[in-house]
């Protein structure tokens, strides 16, 4: 559940979601759910020349299982806090 909470802190930030089919979508993170399904607003296709027929989307719902990477805004991520949180979660899970 840690990454679910983490993504919730990034709502309204701009992210780039790279999918397993090599399509990348850039947009404002609208919401995330427990499966890490993602909703983006103001979507742009990163390589729009390659997939012009996807350029007409306004907002989109991305199924979590098809995501390969999510590029985050560096300024909005506190890696130290995130690292501590992952360690804590690991400790809890070990017990």
């Amino acid at each position: 559940m840690l990454f679910f909470s983490f993504f919730k802190t990034l709502v309204d930030k701009e992210v780039i979601v790279e999918l397993k089919n090599e399509v990348s979508l850039k947009g404002t993170l609208h919401s995330v759910d427990q499966y890490l399904n993602i909703k983006l607003n103001n979507v742009e296709i990163v390589d729009e020349q390659k997939y012009p027929y996807l350029g007409c989307l306004k907002n989109c719902f991305i199924r979590g299982s098809t995501v390969r990477y999510i590029q985050l805004p560096a300024a909005d991520v506190d890696t130290d806090v995130l690292q501590d949180a992952t360690r804590k979660e690991h400790q809890v899970n070990k017990k």
Binding site: C56, L57, K58, N59, R63, T66
Partner: peptide, 15 residues
């Protein structure tokens, strides 16, 4: 399903 997006009809027609 990979992703679902709402279509902007005007943009789609002028694709």
């Amino acid at each position: 399903v990979t992703f679902i997006g709402e279509v902007d009809q005007e943009k789609f027609l002028s694709l």
